[in-house]
Simulated assay, not measured.
Amino acid sequence: MHTISLGDGLQTSALGFGAMAVTHVYGGADDHAALGVLNAAVDTGVTFIDTADVYGEPEPGTTGPAGTNEKLVARLLADRRDEVTLATKFGITGLGGTEGAKATRGDADYVRASCDASLRRLGTDVIDLWYLHRRDPDVPVAETVAAMAEMVGAGKVRHLGLSEVTASELREAHAVHPIAAVQSEWSVWSRDVETNVVPACAELGVGFVPYSPLGRGFLTGTLTRDQVAADRRGSTARIGDNWDANQRVLAVVADVASRLGVTNAQAVLAWLHAAGERAGVATAPIPGTRSPHRLAENAAAVDVVLDADAIAALDSIADLVAGGRNIAADPAWISAGRE
């Protein structure tokens, strides 16, 4: 697989792997199977591995970020660190819903402690791309990024990223330290970032890492209602409440994929690469899967070229979507709720 350059000189594979997929969020996998998928990703050339300190079930008797997904990724890194571009995140405390507890923190003390904790769990001495997972509304983003930059100066982090930030927040942060990438939801059915955030990335030379590029699996056409009812997707507005209404979205994707002789996933991933090119932004989507077979299919998407009719059809999907993309009750949880 070819590599791309995001921002700040960061080189990654053109497709990444969202390791959250092998946690409990979407059904999960046992550690042996999950590690097998991670190794299969690297074998396939998908060497940009994305995790976060909050992914995974908290260990008994602990509070705060679970860290269990980072510990799983550590088992991959133990043998293959030199092959992996490692991304992780901090800032979501894991205490959301706990009375009196902050859902996010971005104060300097928390920044430093989170970096050291992730390094310990990952069993490595440096993080290639370290994101602020969600900003702390009580701390200026510039202050948080200044503390993150200290970790770069200390040699603990190579590049900085931000997740679900607005265009103004990105500019404020970038003025403090170069930002390599913004990670937010972006796909054929989640396009709000194209209004302000993506243009700001193009302006500043910042790469974009789309999460949930396959619509949490819905756009693949392989999910069943029973599957999503058993995990968090069943409680989302688009997949849970509007399963029937959004079958019209799926029909458009399936029609394009069938005509081109590719899978649904390949079609929508190819659309994202084309959308990035149109916007002048390097993109590295991070679909997740628990199947090595699906991994290989997704990796092949980087070589799929869409014709003008396919792009036009997929562009039309945004007008058909029922339900918003925010999976949290707080509108400010995603960038669109703060712009």
Score class of each variant (00 low, 15 high):
59 E>Y: 08
67 G>R: 12
68 T>F: 02
89 K>N: 09
70 E>N: 09
67 G>L: 11
65 P>S: 11
57 E>P: 15
80 R>K: 04
60 P>F: 14
65 P>V: 15
76 L>Y: 01
76 L>T: 05
88 T>E: 09
85 T>D: 09
64 G>W: 05
74 A>Q: 02
71 K>F: 07
70 E>F: 00
76 L>H: 01
76 L>R: 01
88 T>V: 10
78 A>K: 12
69 N>D: 07
88 T>H: 03
84 V>P: 03
69 N>C: 07
66 A>E: 11
64 G>V: 08
69 N>H: 01
78 A>T: 05
82 D>G: 10
61 G>Q: 08
86 L>Y: 03
86 L>Q: 03
87 A>E: 15
89 K>E: 05
79 D>H: 13
81 R>K: 09
83 E>C: 06
58 P>Q: 08
57 E>W: 11
82 D>N: 13
61 G>V: 02
61 G>R: 05
72 L>C: 11
63 T>Q: 15
85 T>W: 02
64 G>C: 10
58 P>I: 00
72 L>A: 12
74 A>N: 04
88 T>F: 00
70 E>D: 13
84 V>M: 10
60 P>M: 14
87 A>M: 15
88 T>P: 04
67 G>H: 11
82 D>P: 10
68 T>I: 03
84 V>W: 08
60 P>D: 12
81 R>D: 10
81 R>T: 05
74 A>S: 09
59 E>H: 07
70 E>Q: 04
57 E>H: 14
66 A>G: 10
56 G>F: 01
71 K>M: 15
69 N>Q: 03
63 T>F: 06
65 P>G: 13
83 E>R: 13
67 G>A: 13
80 R>P: 04
75 R>V: 02
65 P>C: 14
66 A>T: 11
61 G>D: 08
87 A>N: 15
84 V>T: 08
68 T>V: 06
62 T>S: 12
65 P>F: 09
61 G>N: 07
77 L>P: 05
57 E>L: 14
79 D>R: 13
87 A>F: 14
61 G>K: 05
77 L>W: 01
83 E>S: 12
58 P>T: 03
75 R>S: 07
71 K>H: 11
61 G>M: 04
83 E>K: 12
64 G>A: 13
59 E>K: 14
59 E>M: 15
72 L>H: 08
58 P>E: 05
71 K>T: 13
80 R>F: 00
62 T>P: 05
75 R>Y: 00
84 V>A: 11
60 P>W: 13
81 R>Q: 12
70 E>K: 00
73 V>W: 07
67 G>V: 08
89 K>V: 06
68 T>L: 01
67 G>F: 10
88 T>R: 02
84 V>S: 10
78 A>F: 05
68 T>A: 06
72 L>K: 04
86 L>M: 08
83 E>N: 06
71 K>P: 07
67 G>S: 13
88 T>M: 03
67 G>I: 06
85 T>A: 09
85 T>K: 05
63 T>M: 03
67 G>E: 12
75 R>L: 10
88 T>K: 02
89 K>R: 12
64 G>Y: 08
71 K>R: 15
79 D>Q: 14
87 A>D: 15
